[in-house]
Structure formats: structure tokens, C-alpha cells
Design a protein around this nucleic acid. Structure first.
Lengths: 216, 216
DNA sequence: CCCGCGCCTTGACGACTGTCAAGACTTCTC
DNA sequence: GAGAAGTCTTGACAGTCGTCAAGGCGCGGG
């Protein structure tokens, strides 16, 4: 209020703290899951004490939802590079498959948390709004990839965005579980599965098989 | 031990009680989810008191795993009729799609519990063995349907059982969440999606398009 | 009749939970 | 440098949790 060009308004600092707290919380949540991550445990893994949570958040649930929304924001553009750098359909599939496998390795805790919360939202109505919003964002993200792929292949996508996301999410979830069980080869399998699946997502080739080679 | 042909051995009665308890527990678990279903709540919704759980089960976890295994046993043959009664590929798809939608309506609590437990198993290693076993059983179940469909269509399945299950499970899970959010039309959508998906699960038609009509 | 054994209830335990109030510490203002 | 506002810690609260021991009830065999 004093100086208009202050480095940080109090409100900024407040928001910054919320972000830092949410960051710590996300680490703990990814480790323990929604049900077992207590506020004390979350605070212990941060630089704060357990009481501070109610200074920045009204509720445990408000913290959780804030956390997941924050993660969504960082996660939602993970595949933008795949789309931007793609020049051929085959190259995009390859990059997409690699990125999916990389995501499983790098972000396994975050994604099991996401599946945990989505399951919880089937029981707790208070989680549904945030979950559905994030689910929609993920669907949009997948759709950007697949529709770009279709454009490069010069064929329309044969399925709705919703179905496309559902199918890929099913495979991804399966691979994540396999990865957490330390099954051998799940990542390679996932890559193969995506390479296999992407073509069948497209509408059947327009002219049966004649110009298949001369396409580009 | 006294009479060889006794109506019920004590062991039988013991098992019967375990089953009855697990039945009650399943109802409560389907209502509240894994994390919020306490032993007291489970016992309250049964004809027993809360202490009896430790007479029949060593642990809460043993009870839960027993419950889910028991449910699996009843659930695993739900689609057998679809397979047995099918005479044409189209008819099988129709019956399968209907049965999936019916399952969502009739067994929504059980299936959200299943997804809850599968998510929990990503955090709790002690749940993994049972979850993986059940997942495999479901995969087999789906495979019986799809491979029968392929046989009726006189074309091989184009994907592995694992992928087939993953894709269908993705759609089913999506539909279940939508159903629990009381979205309109999710059941019809699911049916349409399955009708659309099943043909693309098969390998590409062997001879491009010539005998498509004379097939049967 | 009474003893003993299986079945079940009751009550209590320690641990853990979310929440919040009281106060200490820091930071900024006048 | 005193005071006020903001920030954070500490400790306690009311509940709930899984677990288990102590004991009551019913029933069949001595």
C-alpha cells in the first residue's frame, strides 16, 4: 500500500508461501498418498511447523486441492514440446511414447497421487470439481498431441477427445502400476503400445491402400 | 471330528462367518472407501460388534484382502453369459456393451472400491499381490470376451490381452466417474464407445474390402 | 448339575488425527 | 527505539483409529 512499486506486496509473499507449502505437501502426498499424509507429516517434510498450515489454508482439503491444482499447472504443458517439435507423424509418435515413459520414471509419485485423488473423488463429492477440471485439462493435452499427429498423417482422428484420452489413460495407468511393482520392461512395453495404438486412433485410410506410399 | 458326515464342521462355520463378515464389510467399503471405512463402522453395518473382527481376521488388512478376493470370485464370471450366448460378432458387442453399462449401474460402489484399492496398492506394497492377481483375472475375463468376438468375426485380435484390457478399463473407469457425477448420457456414451472400439481391436481386415459383404 | 470350551461383547489402551488458541518471534512503521 | 502488524511455534483439545484383554453367554459332555 505504501509504495506502488514495492518489490513484494504482502499478498505476493502470502501467495509465495502458499506455493512453497504446497510444494512440500506435494512431495509428502506423492510419498504417502492422500489418506496417510497427515498435516504433521506434511509439515515435518517442510521447513515449517504443523500449525502453519491453518495460517495459509483454511482446511486440509483446501491445501490438497490447491496442491493438485498447482501440480496440474506445471504438468499440463509437458507434452507441448512434443507437439511443437514434430515434423512427421512417425516422429511425433516416437517423441510422445518416449515422453510418456519418461513421465512415468520422473513423476511416478505425482501420478499415483493423481490416480489416488481421482479414486477418492468417487467417494468424496468435495473433490470432484477439482478432479473433473484437471481431467478435462489432461484430456485437452492429449488431444493436442493426437490431433497434431492426425494432421501430420493427413487423416482425421477416428475418435472423440474423451475416448482418446480414456484409452491412453488406461494404458498409462497400467504402465504406472507395473512400474511401481518393478516389473521389467514396462517402459518398453508402453512405448510399443503407444506406437501400436496411435495409428488405430485415426479414421480408416481414405482410399483403401493404393496411395499409402505416395502420401508424402 | 465326532461324526465324519456332520452337517457342518466347526471349520465350515468359521468360514461361513468370515464370508458373512466380509459381505457386510464390502457394503461399507463400497460406501466409504478404503481409507474411511473403520472397523467400527464396518461392524456397525453388520450384525456383529466391532471386536469380532479380530476373532475372525488377524488384521484389518487381512479382512480387506479377503473381502476383495471374495468379490472377485463373484464378479469374474459376470460376462460369461455374454460369451456363451453370442452367435454373431455384432450381437456379442451389443450384449457386452449392455452388460458393461449394467455393471456400472448395479455395481458402482464395488467398482469404485476396486479402483480405490488399486490406487492404494501404488502406495502400499502389502496390497499389491492381491491387486495384481485380481487385475490379471479381470484381464482374462475381458480377453475371453474379445477373443470370442474375434473368432465370430473370423479375424484375429490385433492387440495383446494386456493392452486390450487396459483400453477397455480406461473407458470403463471414465464412465464410472461420469456416472457417479450424475452426468447425463454416460451409459449411452459408454455403449457407443464400446461399439466403436471393438472393431478396431481386431487386426486389419485380411483382404482389403472385397469380401466384406460375403463374409457370412 | 456343573464344568469347560467356542463365540461374541464390552471397555479400555495408546497412538494418531484435524483444528485452533495462546503466545513468541520477526519485520516494518512512526 | 517503542509499538504494531504480520508470521510462525507450541501445546492442547476432542475425536477416531486399530488392537486386544477381560469377561459374559450358550451349549454339549462329564
Amino acid at each position: 500500500m505504501t509504495t506502488a512499486t514495492a518489490r513484494r506486496t504482502p499478498a505476493d509473499k502470502h501467495d509465495e508461501r502458499r506455493r512453497a507449502l504446497a510444494d512440500s505437501a506435494l512431495r509428502t502426498l506423492g510419498e504417502l498418498g492422500y489418506a496417510r499424509a497427515s498435516l504433521r507429516e506434511i509439515a515435518n517434510n517442510s521447513e515449517f511447523s504443523h500449525g502453519v498450515v491453518h495460517y495459509y489454508f483454511h482446511d486440509k482439503l483446501e491445501l490438497i486441492v490447491y496442491c493438485v491444482r498447482q501440480y496440474k499447472a506445471t504438468c499440463v504443458h509437458r507434452y507441448d514440446g512434443v507437439v511443437a517439435d514434430a515434423t512427421t507423424a512417425e516422429g511425433l509418435v516416437e517423441a510422445f511414447a518416449d515422453k510418456l515413459a519418461e513421465t512415468i520414471v520422473d513423476e511416478a509419485p505425482m501420478h499415483r497421487l493423481w490416480y489416488d485423488l481421482r479414486s477418492q473423488s468417487m467417494f468424496e463429492e468435495s473433490l470432484r470439481e477439482a478432479v473433473l477440471q484437471i481431467d478435462q485439462t489432461l484430456e485437452d493435452m492429449v488431444w493436442r498431441v493426437v490431433s497434431t499427429y492426425a494432421a501430420l498423417a493427413a487423416r482425421p482422428v477416428g475418435m472423440t477427445p474423451h475416448v482418446t484420452y480414456g484409452l491412453l489413460d488406461g494404458l498409462f495407468q497400467q504402465a504406472l502400476l507395473g512400474y511401481l511393482c518393478e516389473r521389467e520392461g514396462v517402459l518398453d512395453d508402453l512405448r510399443d503400445q503407444v506406437r501400436e495404438l496411435m495409428p488405430v486412433l485415426l479414421a480408416p485410410a481414405p482410399s483403401s491402400s493404393r496411395r499409402a506410399k505416395s502420401e508424402r
